[in-house]
């Protein structure tokens, strides 16, 4: 009974989200001039982390503070992030403390987990994601497809729906995706403000996506 209620609530929430999103998409975007912006980066595991850190490495100091979200127990990603931030600090301002923070949330989906049980684990990680995103209130969320990015982006969207803050969501599909989108990509195609692909075949299939060549 409880699960049916939760499911109904989830479906209801998603419907509301979609309606709001449609409205937001059709509304013209205004570019607000700014000097800096807070960044929330969703690092996944393995290849996802490597890719997204290359993108973060190319961003200027204006993207500060930087908040990284990793899945619990993902020590590999944590050490890659520390290494990147250390090298940034050495390169730019050896005397200043680097402006970055690391946050851990439960995994929303293990590789090969079934779709239905993913829905529940994702809802569970929403429970952790929303308070986190609400606390950070980033200007921009950057992600590239680990399962963890879905609850984070939904939370970011909720901030906008609740009128707390409009968060820009940027999704970069992994270089591994040449012809088909990942599951996260298929979901965030509807939710992101900017959806970037790295192969021309995907740009053809999704004409509204952005193709800048190979960026990682």
């Amino acid at each position: 009974m409880v699960s049916i209620l939760i499911l109904t609530a989830a479906v209801g929430a998603v419907t509301i989200l979609l309606v709001q999103r449609l409205w937001a998409v059709f509304r013209p975007h205004h570019v607000t001039p700014r000097k800096s912006l807070g960044l929330l980066i969703v690092a996944g595991s393995g290849g996802h982390t490597t890719e997204i850190l290359r993108l973060v490495g190319s961003l200027s100091h204006a993207y500060s503070p930087r908040h990284y979200v990793i899945a619990e127990s993902d020590e590999m990603s944590a050490s890659k992030i520390h290494a990147l931030e250390r090298s940034r600090a050495e390169r730019d301002s050896p005397t200043k403390c680097p402006q970055y923070h690391l946050h851990r949330i439960p995994r929303s989906r293990e590789v090969r987990q079934s779709w239905l049980s993913s829905v529940f684990t994702t809802l569970n990680s929403m429970w952790f994601s929303f308070p986190l995103v609400h606390r950070i209130k980033p200007d921009l969320v950057l992600c590239n497809g680990p399962g963890t990015c879905v609850p984070i982006c939904v939370s970011a969207l909720l901030l906008g729906i609740l009128g707390i803050k409009k968060v820009i969501i940027v999704y970069v599909e992994s270089i591994c995706r040449v012809e088909t989108l990942s599951l996260s990509g298929k979901i965030l195609w509807h939710l992101s403000d900017f959806f970037i692909v790295q192969w021309p075949a995907l740009k053809e299939k999704y004409p509204k996506s952005i193709y800048l060549g190979r960026i990682v």
């Binding site: 607000t32 700014r34 000097k35 200027s60 204006a62 820009i168 270089i175 960026i215």
Partner: peptide, 18 residues
């Protein structure tokens, strides 16, 4: 090699970074 600088240039523009 990939060109992440194209990504940062794009992002700077669309977020309105001065």
């Amino acid at each position: 090699p990939g060109q992440p600088e194209k990504f940062s240039a794009f992002l700077d523009k669309v977020v309105g970074l001065q």
